[in-house]
Simulated assay, not measured.
Amino acid sequence: MIQEIKSLKFPKSNIISINGIELEVFEAGKENIGNPIVLCHGFPEHAFSWRYQIPALAKAGYHVIVPNQRGYGNSSRPKEVTAYDITHLTDDLVALLDYYNYRDAVFVGHDWGANVVWNLALLHPERVNKILNLALPYQERGEKPWIQFMEEIFGEDFYFVHFNKKPGVADAVLENHAENFLRNLFRKNLPLAPPEPGMLMMNLAKAEKPFGEPIMNDVDLSVFVSAFRNSGYNGAINWYRNLDRNWHLLADIDPIIKQPTLMIYGNLDMIPKFERLQDFVPNLDVICLECGHHIQQELPHETNESILKWLAKFNG
């Protein structure tokens, strides 16, 4: 069942058929045809995570396009795990541009959405004219597949590894504790080392005592809770289950990103900064904000100001 989101006058969604699936897409600034910007959410999130950026970008003259990517919201949730590999995820965004008759666009990503945007620029560089990514820096393709590497470093209980080694287990735990998990996840200043950090997602789902201050009110939280009660977590977690497959798919791809790029870090984020980012993204600017992982929701004004100021450099 499709539910209308009314918080902050969030735009209504449309269901569009592209790339063999259906995507739920929110739009603003339709009058700004010809100046597209696509916002890509992370895990475990929703297009609603961009609620503060959508009106600001539309007011600034952008046609704002915000999909719930496959596995999320009211978008399709294919059963096959491989349907969530990086080829499918980036092809969805290419097909989205084709749907709107755009040759290219500015792409903004947060968390897993940032990973998709980084790889979109590698796999379809002609469709990306600028990149703004939040929280998750470019992931260097090392000598070993990512899950294999993480298991050797962090052990089998690290949640990336757990998702892959024990399919269905985390999915069920998160679904059985949907509200508690999201309430505990969307908080400021999560500690750098919560108990049993490898089991972070499971701990957040089961924890009775929150780890920090909330970043949203109950009304906004209810949008995420309702969405995941409807969709479940299997599709979203399947993105993780393709990491080693993605490593192989990217084997022969030029790893250098040439587009102008803004990387926004949260200084309190558990994800470390990538000190050699400019080696792979030479046309780079970096901004650090005093917040945790959920940058655009924790500091919406500062995020909007950073994005708009950086984009304005190219409009003079």
Rank of each mutant, 00 (worst) to 15 (best):
A193E: 15
A121L: 02
A178G: 13
T82Q: 14
N129A: 04
N74F: 15
N189D: 15
D98K: 15
V117E: 03
H124V: 01
L134P: 04
E179D: 13
D92L: 08
F186Q: 01
A135H: 03
N176G: 14
G71Q: 08
G71P: 09
P67S: 10
F154L: 14
K166I: 14
R141V: 12
L134W: 08
E151R: 15
T87C: 10
L93E: 02
H46W: 12
N119F: 01
A58V: 00
L97W: 03
A170F: 09
P78I: 01
A172T: 15
A60E: 12
Y138I: 07
F158Q: 14
S75L: 12
G168M: 14
V64I: 06
F160T: 04
L192K: 11
N115M: 13
N68F: 08
W50F: 15
R127A: 09
D111E: 09
G73I: 04
Q69C: 12
L96N: 00
E156C: 01
E152G: 13
D104T: 03
L120E: 00
G155T: 03
K130A: 08
W118R: 08
K59L: 06
A83R: 08
N129L: 06
N133Q: 11
K130T: 05
L190N: 07
A170R: 12
R141W: 03
S75Y: 12
P55F: 01
V173R: 12
T90R: 07
F154I: 00
E152W: 05
F160S: 04
F163S: 15
